[in-house]
Simulated scan of single mutants.
Amino acid sequence: MTQPEPGTVVVSEAGTGRYTQHVTAGGYEFVVDEPVSMGGDGSGPTPYDFLLGALGSCTAITLRMYADRKNIPLANVNIRLKHDRIHARDCERCDTEVGMVSRITREIELEGDLDDEQRAKLLAIADKCPVHRTLENQIDVQTKLV
Rank of each mutant, 00 (worst) to 15 (best):
L81G: 01
T8S: 07
G15M: 03
D90W: 03
G39K: 15
D84S: 14
A25H: 04
D33Q: 07
G42F: 13
Y19G: 07
A60Y: 07
P73R: 06
P47V: 01
M65N: 11
P47K: 00
G26V: 03
T46Y: 07
G39H: 13
V11D: 09
T62Y: 02
I61S: 03
L63H: 02
P73G: 05
A14W: 05
Q21N: 07
S12W: 07
V23F: 06
T2R: 08
I72W: 03
I72Q: 04
L55P: 00
Y48C: 01
A60T: 11
S37Q: 15
Y48R: 04
D41R: 14
I72N: 00
F30A: 00
V77I: 11
A60N: 09
G27M: 04
T24S: 05
V36F: 12
A60S: 15
R69M: 11
T20C: 11
G27E: 01
V10W: 03
S37V: 13
N76T: 02
G17D: 09
T8D: 05
F30Q: 04
D68K: 12
T8W: 02
A54Q: 00
N71L: 13
H83L: 14
G27P: 01
A88G: 07
G39E: 10
H87R: 15
H87S: 14
A25K: 02
G27N: 00
K70H: 11
G42H: 10
A14P: 02
Y66G: 08
T8L: 05
T46Q: 14
V31F: 06
V32A: 07
R89S: 11
C58W: 04
R64A: 12
I79Y: 05
I61G: 01
T20D: 10
S12A: 14
A88C: 10
G39I: 13
G27L: 02
R85W: 11
C58S: 15
L74E: 07
V11L: 15
A25F: 05
K82H: 15
I86G: 00
T62A: 08
T96G: 10
E34M: 11
S12H: 13
P45E: 06
L81A: 03
I79Q: 01
V32I: 13
Q21M: 09
L81E: 04
V11G: 10
G15N: 04
